[in-house]
Amino acid sequence: MVLLESHKVPKQETPIRLQEYIVGIFSSIPTKSGIKKAIKKDLVHVNGHKATTALFIHGGEFIELYQPEENTSKKQFIFPLEVLYEDDFLAIIVKPAGILVSGNSFATIYNALPQNLQKSTQKDTVPPKPVHRLDYPTSGLLLIGKTNAALVTLSKLFEKKTIQKTYHAVTIGNMENSGIITFPVDDKPSESRYTVLQTIPSEKYGALNLVELHPKTGRRHQLRKHLHAIGNPILGDKEYYIEGLVSYGNGLYLHASSLTFVHPFTQEKVTFTKELPKKFRRIFSNS
């Protein structure tokens, strides 16, 4: 095991349970649930001995937090990724369509990250991890946390909806120039705003639209369900479609094109963008 952090306990007026005392003491694991897991995995030592959740702290103890040594023999998923931005806390990568972000499969973005990103030099460094998800058939920008503090802080930004996400899609059929869709998704309030940027006639579909999308909530498959609900499903969507108007050739035409947020460690407002995939530009030559 590798020593991460250590702490000398000052004198305590009354004994306190270890798992209560060290919440917030170690920057590597700031949460109570994380501390509990670390204790159960024998990663917390008190005075040189493995700690238990039943241990009480009286003062004067020396607490050490460890992390397991990396298993270099573990099979690695070699999959080159485009890294749009990287610093010691976070990264922005471009997820190709047709790959899972995470899960039980070996071929995931999560398993490919260690080969594509530099390890953070911060004390609370962790294996890089996606902070949010994109569907398997969706391409575009994915925000990655590289430290425990970054993962916690970025997750809170998503919860507070202060990270602005922009998507682009190709939709089927005639549409209003802009609109707000508020159909519930999974019985939960949901909102998506859209603007039609370009429309071309189509013999098969009647019309194809290049649409800019801004989801205000983050429900599963929200944009796909919302556009289907107003009668304008996304081209290539095999789950939410109009009978007889399914395209099987080039996958789903949905792309996460932009992320805007305040960098939680530099406090700088940043915007990252990724141009539309070639399959979009083949349909809309001006995009």
Rank of each mutant, 00 (worst) to 15 (best):
I242N: 02
I22L: 11
Y66L: 13
K146D: 01
L157G: 05
G103D: 06
Y110V: 08
P30M: 07
F106M: 11
F26T: 06
S247P: 01
L213E: 00
V211M: 06
A51Q: 04
Q118V: 15
F89S: 08
P96F: 04
L213D: 00
D237P: 02
M1Q: 12
V270N: 07
T14E: 12
V196H: 02
K8H: 08
L235E: 00
K37G: 07
A91H: 00
S190V: 10
S33E: 13
G103V: 08
P201A: 12
P68Y: 13
H255F: 06
S102H: 15
D42Q: 15
I92T: 01
I180D: 11
K156I: 10
R219P: 06
I242D: 00
V152K: 14
T199P: 05
L254D: 00
Q198F: 03
L43S: 06
K119A: 07
D124E: 03
A91D: 05
T217N: 09
V196M: 03
S105C: 07
P215H: 05
E70G: 10
I22R: 10
S73N: 13
P68H: 13
F89V: 05
S192Y: 01
F106V: 04
V94N: 09
A149Y: 08
F79N: 00
F79D: 05
L223V: 11
L43P: 02
K11M: 12
T121W: 03
F284M: 12
R193N: 13
T121L: 12
I144C: 00
Q118G: 07
P277K: 04
T53F: 03
K8S: 14
I29G: 04
P189H: 05
P127V: 12
L276D: 03
A207S: 14
S105A: 15
Y194R: 12
G34T: 06
L134Y: 02
T166Y: 04
K11F: 12
Y167I: 01
